[in-house]
Design a protein around this nucleic acid. Structure first.
Length: 384
DNA sequence: GTTGCCGGGTG
DNA sequence: CACCCGGCAAC
């Protein structure tokens, strides 16, 4: 239980929001129905949807962000060239950004294997941070992770951007950019529907999102972390890209991983090239890949939609189609059954206390949102 | 057989 | 409401 504390994930959607897909960033300001209190799981980052991020209400950004923000654990720093020493995290961002950009520009590899590369390191990276969390964060244990509370109160359904998984991990990245074991560069890409901007620093990205998409100017300190949902972290591991990605994928279901969001990273293939540019770049299809699939999840939770296991992200036929053609099955079939593991599988029946509330109740898992239904939630079609 | 979770029951 | 489970469909 507490031994391994979960990161601060947020599952995402605690409840089915009415809006399944958001068309554009300027969608309507829906106030999202939020669950006043969902089960612990209420929140979530599921992957939510990447719908119109217009007035998104972040889920519990504060929570994770807060946790992460603290001392942070940086695994270290970025894999920058070797000369840079990780001294000031704060500055690291900038430094790393520069380094990253530089490296990227020179590495052709990046362009190619992006997708595969990202998956690698499922369990080790993102999750490592949580455990390291600051003491003050308290222990989220107890049954659910601490995020649930925050999630709920903060905002329930939010239009979260596409990927949950990333969210999970770049959240932490904000304060301290993490890097991979070998050489890795971390960049942050805006997931806003048509944006795609890539920045070298999380703070920069957050600022961009706040100003450009959220329309707020609040200072970073005040931000509740909502921005986290709109950008993703791109880890560019040189070695990984080179060809070792696949092996990295090994995951350990044991405990070290992300209790809440196993999802690792998303595929951001084309983006790499763009990385060269610190700012503004064209939104590659990357977004589409990730975003589309998740369009379905209304609730966001950033951690939400993604499935932990769905490293492949959208490959799942069912998942991908859902958003697009809900009508097909929305009415008659039950659900494609998520491809990802749910709490039961992840933690085991014996660790039921670690399960998300929904799983405990035998409801759709909110922590590991897999490919579930997105469109109006046919839930009742079951027929029974 | 296992898993996910709908649909409905109970307090 | 929260909490739980029967039972079914997808694996």
């Amino acid at each position: 239980m507490e031994a391994e504390r979960p990161p601060a994930p947020g599952p995402a959607c605690g409840h089915p929001s009415p809006r399944a897909a958001g068309p554009e960033p300027a969608a309507a300001p829906v106030s999202v129905p939020a669950p006043p209190q969902g089960p612990a799981v209420g929140g979530g980052l599921a992957g939510l949807q990447f719908s119109p991020p217009q007035e998104p209400e972040p889920r519990a950004p504060g929570t994770w962000a807060g946790a992460a923000a603290g001392p942070l654990t940086p695994s270290a720093h970025i894999p920058v060239p070797a000369h840079r020493a990780p001294q000031g995290k704060a500055r690291l961002d900038e430094v790393m950004a520069a380094a990253a950009l530089t490296s990227l520009s020179t590495s052709p590899l990046l362009l190619g294997p992006p997708a595969a590369g990202f998956h690698a390191e499922p369990g080790s990276e993102p999750w490592s941070e949580p455990p390291v969390q600051p003491p003050g964060s308290g222990s989220g244990s107890g049954g659910d992770w601490g995020w649930d509370l925050a999630s709920e109160q903060s905002s329930p359904p939010t239009p979260s951007p596409p990927l949950p998984l990333e969210a999970a991990h770049f959240l932490f990245g904000e304060p301290a950019p993490r890097k991979r074991k070998g050489a890795v560069q971390v960049l942050f890409q805006c997931l806003w529907k048509r944006c795609g901007e890539v920045l070298g620093t999380a703070s920069g990205m957050q600022r961009h999102i706040r100003l450009a998409h959220l329309g707020r100017q609040a200072e970073p300190e005040q931000s509740d972390g909502e921005e986290d949902f709109y950008y993703t972290e791109l880890d560019i591991g040189l070695e990984v890209l080179a060809g070792g990605l696949s092996s990295l994928t090994s995951v350990s279901p044991t405990a070290s991983l992300p209790p809440a969001f196993p999802r690792l990273e998303l595929p951001e293939p084309p983006a790499l090239p763009s990385l060269l540019r610190p700012l503004a770049l064209s939104p590659p299809q990357v977004l589409s890949s990730e975003a589309h699939p998740q369009v379905c999840r209304p609730d966001h939770s950033h951690q939400g939609c993604l499935a932990p296991a769905r490293l492949q992200v959208q490959p799942s036929p069912a998942g991908a189609l859902e958003p697009a053609l809900p009508s097909t099955r929305g009415a008659s079939l039950r659900k494609p059954r998520g491809d990802a593991k749910k709490c039961r599988k992840a933690y085991g029946v014996q660790r039921r206390d670690l399960w998300c509330t929904a799983c405990r109740w035998k409801k759709a898992c909110q922590r590991f949102l897999g490919t579930t239904r997105c469109p109006g939630r046919p839930g009742s079609q079951r027929r029974k």
